[in-house]
Amino acid sequence: MKSLLYRLDVKGSPYLYIVPFFFLFAAFGIFPLAYTAWVSMHEWSLLAETHTFIGLQNYKDLFADEYFWNALRNTAQIWVLSTVPQLLMALVLAHVLNQRLRAPTFWRMTAVLPNITSVAAVAIIFGQIFGKDYGLVNWILESLGLGRIDWQAGTASSQIAISVMIIWRWTGYNALIYLAAMQAVSKDLYDAASLDGASSFQQLTRITVPAIRPTIIFTVIISTIGGMQVLAEPLLFGGASVTGGSDRQFQTLSLYLYEVAFSRFDFGYASTAAWAMFGIIVIVAAINYFLTSRLRRS
């Protein structure tokens, strides 16, 4: 009897311990996902009493919807514009923080300060910095004799402005992740390299980067997922306009979803867009996975 209980305890209790998680995951993860799929097959206005089943019509409409593709393109562009400089700068910043500095904790904390600032505050401040008439950037451009830019009006200029916000918020965060990885790299390698006369930059590219490659891949994956979900920056940059500019020049996928769901109250179509986004993230994650496993093997 005792041994049976013991065996049950050993074999059974681990499952019992993780049951609450799956219970909650089902309630807050699986159920919304499935319910969204159900809603996406209806003509479902938030306030209407009746919801008509229309099968896959919403999906057909979505794939023919040029504003959906426009939002996807914008999202990809903003992702590239923000992630590439951000990760490069984070790498350099981490390399600098990894040197012997006075008050290292102070510098490391400073690096994450932008990240703990509320995104709304960041977006409002940067909205002012990129203002057409009284913005700091245009003031500098003008004093250099370069003329003003209407940052919101252009496709490239608006996406650059939004990317700058994202870069500002996330560079320090990634730098700290890199720093943590760098500290695990053996100091002997650097000492040996110094003896051989390698410059700091050579040490970064030849020793540090190869050594922390898994971490770099991790940050790329994380910023891909994050990049798909950019919402507050374009929303607030456009002065709370859900269309992301007069020509939707900086409307991201999340912002498009937000427009459909909370401006038009068209939950059926918004759910369709949400599922399409989910599909895109799965595809991107799969590509990431294949690239990563290839990199690991090489």
Binding site: I124, Q128, Y134, G135, Q152, A240
Partner: peptide
């Protein structure tokens, strides 16, 4: 037109500066 979007930072500043 001053080409300023309503409720933007430039709009707010423009009210004070006479844009």
């Amino acid at each position: 037109s001053a080409k300023i979007a309503p409720w933007s930072a430039d709009w707010n500043a423009g009210m004070a500066k006479g844009s």
